[in-house]
Every structure is written in C-alpha cells, then in structure tokens.
Simulated assay, not measured.
Amino acid sequence: MPGQIDWLEIPAADTAKARAFYGGLFAWRTDEFGGDYHVIAHGPAGAITPAEAGFTHPRVYFGTDDIEASVERLRELGGRSEDVQAVPGVGRIAHCHDDQGTPFSLFEPAPGS
C-alpha cells in the first residue's frame, strides 16, 4: 500500500552488539543477508546494518506503486531524492529528504513480490 512503512534499517557502529541489544530487548533474531547486513527474522520487517556517513539514525522505507512518479511528486513538493537504485530480486529504492530535510526512503517492490 502506498505510504505504508514497508522496511526499517537500523544502522550500528557494531552490528553484533546491536543484534545482541535488540535481541535482548525485543527477542529479535536476525539472519545474515550478505556482508554485515542482518535481516530481522523475528520482529519488524527490516535489518540491522553498518552505520556510515550520513546514515546514523533509523531509516524508514515507505511503499510506492510507482517510484518514478513518487520521486517526481516529491521534487515538486520541495523534497530531494538520490537516484533510484535496483535491488535485484527485491525491488527498487530511492533515498530521499522531505522539504524540511528529514530523511526517508521509498520502496517499490519487484513485480510479483
């Protein structure tokens, strides 16, 4: 559904410590997806991932049926968006900021997902 939160990423300086913390707090379990990216298997749809410059707070992904149209509308409303990126077998994403600079991302699932 457009506008629904479809995914959450929690950045961490130490993903092992973060997985232990959230596992202890919420009983979340994680599965390694690749590299140091850990999908939450028992909890919200999302992942614990390494923090990086400009990505130090949780990132929410809002669903959209048409990512290009959403990016175009976002820009008309004064927001900013990076280029749309394909995530093979998953869909397409775009990291964005609203008109006040608040970061969020858009997610369009792959056909048939």
Rank of each mutant, 00 (worst) to 15 (best):
A16G: 11
A16L: 05
K17N: 04
A18D: 09
A18S: 14
R19E: 14
R19H: 07
A20I: 02
A20Y: 05
F21I: 10
F21T: 13
F21G: 02
Y22H: 05
Y22L: 02
Y22S: 03
Y22E: 04
G23D: 10
G23W: 11
G23I: 01
G24N: 09
G24H: 01
G24K: 00
G24D: 03
G24A: 00
L25P: 08
L25N: 07
L25E: 07
F26M: 15
F26Y: 14
F26E: 09
F26A: 15
A27G: 15
W28P: 03
R29K: 15
R29I: 01
R29P: 00
T30N: 06
T30R: 03
D31N: 15
D31C: 08
D31V: 08
E32S: 12
F33N: 08
F33C: 02
F33H: 05
G34I: 01
G34K: 10
G35W: 01
G35A: 06
G35I: 02
D36Y: 02
H38P: 02
H38K: 10
H38E: 10
V39E: 14
I40N: 08
I40T: 05
I40R: 03
A41D: 14
A41S: 15
A41N: 06
A41R: 12
A41H: 07
A41T: 13
H42N: 15
H42R: 09
H42Y: 12
H42K: 08
H42T: 13
G43R: 02
G43F: 04
G43L: 03
P44G: 01
A45R: 10
G46N: 10
G46L: 09
G46C: 07
A47P: 11
A47V: 12
I48L: 15
I48N: 13
T49Q: 08
T49W: 08
T49M: 14
P50L: 01
P50T: 01
A51R: 11
A51Y: 08
E52Y: 10
E52M: 13
A53Y: 11
A53S: 13
F55S: 04
F55D: 00
T56P: 06
H57M: 05
H57D: 04
H57Y: 04
H57Q: 13
P58F: 10
P58W: 04
P58T: 09
P58V: 08
R59F: 02
R59V: 06
R59Q: 13
R59W: 07
R59I: 11
V60E: 07
V60A: 14
V60K: 06
Y61I: 10
Y61R: 04
Y61D: 04
F62C: 04
F62D: 00
F62M: 14
F62H: 03
F62P: 00
F62Y: 13
F62W: 11
F62E: 00
G63C: 02
T64M: 10
T64D: 07
D65E: 15
D65S: 09
D65W: 06
D66H: 07
D66N: 15
D66V: 03
D66M: 03
I67E: 11
E68H: 11
A69W: 15
S70F: 05
